[in-house]
Every structure is written in C-alpha cells, then in structure tokens.
C-alpha cells in the first residue's frame, strides 16, 4: 500500500507525519530542532519542488510512505489523483492520501511562509520548528490512526 501524506508545501507537517510513520523519529518523544532538521525534506522544499511525490521509507507492515505538496487544492488534490489512478487502472485501494493540514498551527504557517516562501530561513525556521513541536503529538496521533487502519488491522 502507498501512503501519501500531503500538505501545502510538503516541507513540515507532511514530512513530520511521514517520518513518524516510517519510524525515522519516535512517536512519543518531541524531537529537538536538530533532529527535525535532519529529517528528509524538512524545511527544504521550495516552489519548484511542489507536486513531486517523495519517498520517505517503509513502515513495519510493508507500506510505502511518501510526502507531497498540494498548495490550495485541498480535497480536490485527492479527488484528482484518485480519478487519474482510476483512469489508468491503478487500484485505488492501494492508495491512501492523508491530509496533515488540519494539524498545522499558526506558528507553522508563519514560520513556513517566512522560511520557504520569503527565504528568511534564519527567522522562519525557529518559528516553524516550535510550531512543529507544539503539534507533534497531533501528528503522532494521526499517524497511529493511519497505522491502525492500514497496518495493524490488515496484518
């Protein structure tokens, strides 16, 4: 199964959730700034990278974990991708799209905008890291729901 976490820019919330899912960080310990910055693609992607689906790793149930960005497409992103998958006869039950936007707090929005959009990394990065740490257990909770649904219950 392919699990795709998606958010606005594919740099913070989706990366954090995907990395928890793939086991790159523990789900019960809030990571420090150094650990977050070592995560693949964390606070890295810029406009030209948006849309690409990046592979993060596998979970213990053999699911493949990815991240991507969808800008303002919101739910339309999943609708479009599932329609295209259907058109190409890709089994839709093999695809799981997980929206991480509901767990993004305003610190992540402001920090992410400053760092990724405006390029003020020194200013935006500490803010977005703080925001990620505040929402960390929400991402962790989301991942556990996904893992239970598409891993534990299916294995």
């Amino acid at each position: 199964m392919h699990v795709i976490y998606h958010c606005y820019g594919g740099s913070h919330s989706s990366v954090t959730a995907a990395c928890i899912h793939a086991g790159l960080i523990k789900d019960n310990i809030i990571p420090n700034a150094e650990k977050l910055l070592k995560l693949p693609y964390y606070d890295q992607q810029v406009a030209k990278d948006h849309g690409y689906i990046r592979y993060i790793g596998n979970d213990e149930y053999g699911n493949k974990i990815y991240i991507t960005s969808k800008h303002n497409l919101a739910k339309d992103y999943e609708t479009i991708m599932r329609s295209i998958a259907g058109m190409m006869e890709i089994p839709n039950d093999q695809l799981v799209f997980v929206d991480t936007m509901p767990y993004v707090n305003w610190l992540m929005v402001i920090g992410g905008y400053l760092s990724r959009r405006l390029g003020f990394t020194k200013l935006g990065r500490p803010i977005v890291i703080k925001g990620t740490q505040i929402s960390f257990f929400k991402f962790s909770h989301l991942v556990n729901i996904i893992k239970t649904k598409y891993g534990r219950l299916k294995s």
């Binding site: 849309g51 689906i53 592979y55 991507t68 295209i84 998958a85 890709i90």
Partner: peptide
C-alpha cells in the same frame, strides 16, 4: 503543473 508532476510520480512508483 503541480498535478502533472504528482501524476507522473504516481505512475512511476505504482
């Protein structure tokens, strides 16, 4: 453009 990138990536990994 975002949808085009995502679609070709989706085809690639599936």
């Amino acid at each position: 453009q975002l949808i085009i990138k995502s679609t070709y990536d989706l085809l690639r990994f599936t």
